[in-house]
């Protein structure tokens, strides 16, 4: 991924540090650690803190595609990991504050599945999909794709980290879902590739990270939450719950998104990504709820709360992103970062 523009002292320092060698960066790393320690204590809301979210996003990116000019050794550099832990601990604490779990169901597959369907069926605020279907302008469709592109161009990757940490029924279910996400052996059918095709059909750049500078903090937070869950084995229940919630809130919204692009005259090149998800996720949500999440809880009932937390956390942070976007659109503003023009 190309280097994004910094959004403050901390993200600037992270980007500068990883452009150098570990030996040359001891003093800047120490400074970074002190800066982050005070910033996580002082931030008004880490979920909307551009500097901290971008800093964390860049550190996670070292585990995915890497960052141009950054040496691969930084991925496991202990001093940089210490900094990352400070930010992700603050993020996790903030999200745990945001999420309220109801009474826990029985630790059986069917009860977990039912509870996840109940949670994902609740009205969680404004509906972006209905707005996109009926009212979004062409410019708003592009903005919508910018927000989604941060995840969808690497769709499925954050959850895939958990596969070796699962076993049996839960693992088989996760792999069954992810194999579909990755195109069942056909690169052009990968969901990330279908999404790239949608972007191209609107004349947008489908390079991973091309619009990172335009994505507000909350959009980065949506992505950072998935990486936090995916990269920490202790949160394996949460990442499984998170994926289940995503699958369970996908079919109907994607049908509406597709309608929005058709309304503006776009054809199959643009809509296939959404149409594919209507059918795929009607399958995935059943496998995810019953076999993947329910199967995990049955094999280890101690993970019940984590699974539900992961689902609730994903829904809560996604709702905050939707609120951000819809508030901007309803008041006639762009939902993207102000300095960015939407070149097409």
């Amino acid at each position: 991924m190309k280097q994004p523009s910094p959004r403050g002292d901390i993200s600037a320092l992270v980007l500068a540090v990883i452009s150098g060698t570990a030996e040359s960066q001891q003093e800047p790393l120490a400074r970074l650690d002190r800066l982050v320690e005070s910033a996580v204590a002082a931030t008004a809301d880490i979920l909307h803190d551009d500097d901290l979210q971008l800093a964390l996003f860049c550190q996670y990116e070292l585990h995915y595609s890497g960052i141009d000019e950054a040496g691969d050794d930084w991925e496991w550099n202990p001093d940089l990991l210490r900094v990352r832990h400070r930010i992700e601990a603050a993020l996790e604490a903030r999200v745990r504050d945001e999420v309220v779990l109801g009474s826990l169901p029985e630790a059986t597959s069917e009860a977990v599945c039912q509870e996840l369907f109940r949670m994902t069926g609740e009205d969680s605020g404004p509906s972006m999909s209905r707005f996109v279907a009926k009212s979004a302008t062409e410019e708003q469709l592009r903005e919508f794709l910018v927000h989604k592109s941060i995840y969808q161009l690497k769709e499925a990757d954050p959850h895939t980290w958990v596969i070796p940490r699962l076993a049996g029924r839960s693992k088989a279910a996760m792999v069954e879902i992810q194999a579909d996400e990755y195109g069942n052996g056909l690169p052009a059918r990968m969901h990330s590739a279908l999404f790239a095709r949608t972007m191209r059909s609107l004349g947008m750049d489908d390079t991973y990270g091309a619009y990172l500078d335009a994505a507000p903090a909350i959009t980065l937070a949506v992505n950072n939450l998935m990486s936090l869950f995916g990269l920490n084995r202790r949160l394996r229940g949460a990442v499984v719950g998170h994926l289940a919630a995503y699958e369970m809130t996908s079919s109907q919204p994607n049908r509406l998104y597709s309608r929005g692009f058709k309304r503006h005259g776009y054809g199959e090149d643009a809509t296939e990504y959404f149409d594919e998800h209507v059918e795929a996720d009607a399958v995935h949500e059943q496998i995810a709820g019953r076999d993947m999440a329910g199967g995990l809880v049955e094999s280890d009932p101690r993970l019940l709360q984590d699974v539900l937390f992961g689902a609730a956390a994903g829904l809560a942070v996604d709702t905050l992103m939707t609120v951000h976007i819809m508030e901007a659109w309803e008041s006639g503003r762009s939902s993207l970062r102000p300095s960015e023009s939407m070149a097409s």
């Binding site: 079919s251 109907q252 209507v278 059918e279 996720d281 009607a282 399958v283 949500e285």
Partner: peptide, 22 residues
């Protein structure tokens, strides 16, 4: 297009015989 499928049994799917979450 997929090995495992979900077939509609509520009657409301617009993708019948497949399920669309309706």
């Amino acid at each position: 297009t997929r090995r495992t499928v979900a077939l509609c049994r509520c009657g409301a799917s617009v993708l019948k015989p497949y399920c669309d979450g309706s």
